[in-house]
Amino acid sequence: MDYSPLFISLKTSICATIVAFLFGIIAARLAIGLPKRVKAVLDVILTLPLVLPPTVIGFILLLIFGWNSPVGQLLRKIGIRIVFSWEATVIAATVVAFPLIYRTIRASLEQIEPSVLDAARTLGLSEWTIFWHIMLPMTLPGCIAGAILGFARALGEFGATLMIAGNIPKRTQTIPVAIWSAAEGNDMQTALIWVLLIIVISFFIILPLNLFGEKRT
């Protein structure tokens, strides 16, 4: 049996989580400083990838990175092809993992008592110091939770991945794609192995989240 989907899935999810985490933390920090209405609208936009059908995400990504799009042509000029590449799996997983990470981090940033930050300011600490030494440590549980949720979501990504990265064995075939591919080809046994494997992996990813969460309350 070919185990490449497992490694592709793990590699893709790790990369996607890291990228989505960086964007998520920046977006969350910027969002909490915004006026309420602006924040509400931005929030909806940033949350959309969570609720839209994966095919819509895939379609939009194709529009952006496709061969005929401005971005796609620009990338082609410098010799990068996104569509049907491994990088495309990362992009698809990043987009769907981002809302979960962003929302979780933002929620825990908002939990911080404003007077703690005000006190830090009156003590002369720079906004940068406040963010790194006070806000981030205080939101560490939220950051971990966000990363775990984002990783689990990235691991399960299927629709958008299939549309933009395709089903190329040993290159873009992640576990969810492999399951679909095997079942499609009537290879139920292979499909079942992958199904069981992804259930076990997901279980052990989510488990610490709950154990950790209980400790906090």
């Binding site: 008592e113 007077s115 703690v116 005000d118 006190a119 830090a120 300011r121 009156t122 002369g124 600490l125 720079s126 030494h133 006070i134 205080m138």
Partner: peptide, 15 residues
């Protein structure tokens, strides 16, 4: 940061 005022908050606001 530039006003150099000491502010003791009701709930102390420790880190």
């Amino acid at each position: 940061q530039k006003r150099r005022t000491g502010f003791l908050f009701q709930q102390y606001a420790l880190f």
